[in-house]
Amino acid sequence: MINLLDFFILILASFRLTRLIVFDEITGFIRRPFISEVIREDETGTAETYIEIKGTGLRRWIGKLLSCYWCTGFWCALGVVLSYHCLPASYPLLLVLAIAGGAAVIESKI
């Protein structure tokens, strides 16, 4: 059984890891082979960013996964939980991700 504190640490770590993979510029190299961001102007001149998924087969499937926050979040949560249960040495990394996730939540509310 998992205690309440570790449960919240895993939630926040999963949240931060998901955002890191899906949105952060520092992990763009992970997304680049699978998706590209295209900026287009609409008729009013407003620039809008669109995601285009590259390739076929497995490459396209990974692109779809990386373009979906909910899909990536599931796999990140699975990885976080497996790390917690199977690799106790990963706990400090999970804790750092959780602290960063908590800080991001606080920052977005201020």
Rank of each mutant, 00 (worst) to 15 (best):
I35Y: 00
L12G: 01
Y84Q: 04
E52D: 15
I53M: 05
A98I: 11
L95A: 07
V80T: 11
L93W: 12
L97K: 05
E107N: 11
I39N: 04
V96M: 11
A47S: 13
A103E: 08
L94T: 06
I26H: 06
L17H: 02
L12I: 06
R60P: 02
S67M: 05
M1V: 08
L87E: 11
R60V: 02
L12W: 14
V38S: 05
S14F: 03
I106H: 11
I110P: 00
E52M: 08
L10P: 07
R16T: 07
V96K: 03
K109I: 11
G102N: 09
E107S: 11
R32I: 04
G101V: 07
T72Q: 04
L66F: 09
A77L: 13
A104D: 15
A13P: 08
R40I: 13
L5N: 11
I53W: 03
I110R: 14
L10Q: 06
W70N: 08
L87R: 09
L12E: 06
L87S: 08
L12R: 06
A89I: 13
T56G: 03
I39Q: 04
V22Q: 01
P33L: 10
A77R: 00
P33Y: 10
G45W: 07
L65C: 05
R19N: 15
V96C: 10
